[in-house]
Simulated scan of single mutants.
Amino acid sequence: MRCLKDAIMDNIKLSRREREKSKHKQEILDSAIRLFSEKGFYNVSMQEIAEKSEFGVGTLYNFFESKEQLFVELMEVGIEKFGQLLIPLLDSEEAEEKKISDFIQAHIELMESNIELIKLYISQYGTFTLVNPMPQKLSNDLNISIQRKLEVILNTGIQKQIFRRVHAEIAALSLCATLKAFILESSENFDKEKAKDGFSKIENYFMNSVLNKNNDNNKA
């Protein structure tokens, strides 16, 4: 019979192989996003991605059946990252005003860390020449989830008299639309300081429109 030590070593080796495989896959995705951002999806070949990532083209096909599948996974991973950054802020135990503030300001980090991905998404899904509709559906699902959570936060704040009696659904939609428009406008020539200023202005404008000025806690 094999000893426990041998079984443990096999698991360690498997774990190392999986980590190495995951690392190689991420290197391919990183190379692909740079090329797609520079040239556009349709002007990049799998051969170019292989050369950029320093793998053989056969290795790419071990991970992805096609360039389209690679692109879709790239988008899906990015959208998942956005959700992992933003959703916990809205689900936190912080006060309602703080949740919204943290959510808005988190978009600075989101843009800075993912600017190439954002540009790529806009270039493909801001037009009618869609590579694949699935990432757009995932993005829409995330947006709907965020809007609903914002609506709950606003309604809770209204009940606590932190916020005025605004229409929570419309206010949430308005905030999301404003953030999206600013990201679209500022992504082409991203500047972190200008982004900070822009998101701060969005926060100030939104808070001024929803805060209950008669609440003692909201008075200057």
Rank of each mutant, 00 (worst) to 15 (best):
E188F: 12
T156V: 05
S101D: 12
M134Y: 09
F182M: 11
S139N: 15
E151H: 07
S92W: 05
C176E: 12
E185V: 00
F163Q: 02
F163D: 04
E116Y: 06
K98S: 04
N132Y: 00
L173S: 13
A177I: 10
Q124T: 03
E94C: 01
S92H: 05
L138K: 07
A181Y: 13
A168G: 02
N132R: 03
N114Q: 02
I146V: 10
L179S: 12
S187R: 04
L154H: 04
K180H: 08
E203A: 07
D141G: 09
I144S: 15
S187I: 04
K149E: 12
E151S: 13
K160V: 00
A172V: 07
E169P: 07
E93L: 08
L150H: 11
R148V: 14
E109Y: 14
P135A: 01
E112T: 09
I115E: 05
S92M: 05
S101G: 07
T129S: 15
S123K: 10
K119F: 00
I118P: 02
K149P: 10
F128S: 09
F199V: 01
A168D: 03
S174I: 05
I100Q: 01
Y121A: 04
F103N: 05
G198Y: 08
P133W: 07
K192H: 10
F163N: 03
E109R: 15
L154Y: 02
K201G: 07
R148E: 15
